[in-house]
C-alpha cells in the first residue's frame, strides 16, 4: 500500500483498536440504570457521527453534480449515501438494544427515536427514486435535488425537533445531556478518538465502494467502445 496515500487508513486502525481496548478497560463514572452500558457511548454514538459525515459528503457531491453535471459527482453522492445509511441502520439497531436494557423497551414514541427512523425512511426513498429513473442524467439531477431535501430533513428530525421537546434520549429537551458524562475527562479521552475512528472507517468503506463503482462504470464504457474485446 502507498503510505503517502493511505496513511489515514493506518490511523483508522490504530484509533479503532484504542477504542475497543480502552473502551472496555478505561474508567467510567458509575451511574444508576446505565451501569456499564455507558460504554456504548464509544460505539453507538459514533455511528450517527459517521452517518452524518457521509450524508454530508453525499449532499455536497449532489450539489456539485447540479453545478457541473459530472456523472462522477453523482456516483460519489450515491456511494456516500449508501454507506451513510448502513451506519444509520447500525445506529438504530444498537440504540434500540441499549434502550431495551436502560429504558426497558426496544422502542418508545420518542421524538429522537422516531426522527432517526424517519430519516432512514427518507434515505430509503432516495434509493427507490434512483432505481425508478432510467435516464442517467435525469436520475442524477433528480436524486441530487432530492438529497438536498433529505439532508435538510435529517437535520430537522435528528438535531432540531428532538431539542424542542422532552425526550428520554440524552442531549434533548429537559433531559440532562450526555455532556454531563462527556465532561468526564477520562471518557472524553476515549470518546473523541472513537468518533474519529468510526467516521474514518465509514469514509474508508465509502472510498472502496466509489472505486469499485468507478471500475464497473469504466468497464461498461469499455465494452461500449470496444464491443468485440
Amino acid at each position: 500500500m502507498n503510505i503517502k496515500k493511505n496513511w489515514w487508513k493506518a490511523i483508522t486502525c490504530v484509533l479503532l483498536f484504542y477504542t475497543v481496548i480502552e473502551g472496555f478497560l478505561g474508567a467510567v463514572p458509575a451511574r444508576d440504570i446505565l451501569n456499564e452500558t455507558i460504554r456504548n457511548l464509544y460505539f453507538h454514538v459514533p455511528m450517527w457521527f459517521g452517518m452524518m459525515t457521509l450524508l454530508f459528503i453525499s449532499v455536497i457531491y449532489g450539489i456539485k453534480h447540479l453545478h457541473n453535471g459530472a456523472m462522477r459527482s453523482d456516483l460519489i453522492a450515491r456511494e456516500a449515501a449508501h454507506t451513510g445509511v448502513i451506519m444509520g441502520v447500525l445506529g438504530l439497531i444498537t440504540g434500540s438494544l441499549w434502550a431495551r436494557y436502560t429504558w426497558g423497551t426496544w422502542w418508545t414514541q420518542d421524538t429522537k427515536l422516531n426522527g432517526a427512523a424517519i430519516t432512514m425512511l427518507i434515505y430509503f426513498a432516495y434509493f427507490i427514486l434512483r432505481g425508478s429513473v432510467e435516464d442517467e442524467q435525469k436520475r442524477a439531477r433528480l436524486s441530487a435535488v432530492y438529497s438536498i431535501f433529505a439532508f435538510v430533513m435529517m437535520i430537522v428530525f435528528v438535531m432540531i425537533l428532538p431539542r424542542m421537546e422532552d425526550s428520554l434520549h440524552p442531549g434533548n429537551g429537559g433531559n440532562p445531556a450526555f455532556s454531563k458524562y462527556d465532561l468526564d475527562s477520562k471518557m472524553r479521552l476515549v470518546f473523541y478518538p472513537a468518533v474519529l475512528g468510526w467516521v474514518l472507517l465509514g469514509v474508508w468503506i465509502m472510498s472502496v465502494r466509489i472505486r469499485i463503482a468507478s471500475i464497473s462504470e469504466a468497464l461498461l464504457n469499455h465494452s461500449d467502445t470496444h464491443p468485440t474485446s
Binding site: M1, K9, L16, V20, I21, I205, I215
Partner: peptide, 27 residues
C-alpha cells in the same frame, strides 16, 4: 472480552484491507 472484540476488529480490518488491495489491482 477485550481479546474477542479485538480479534473481531482485526478480522474485519484485514478483510477491508484485502478488498482495498483487490480494488487497487483491478484499477
Amino acid at each position: 472480552v477485550v481479546c474477542v472484540a479485538a480479534i473481531v476488529l482485526t478480522g474485519l480490518l484485514v478483510y477491508l484491507i484485502t478488498i482495498d488491495r483487490k480494488v487497487s489491482k483491478l484499477e
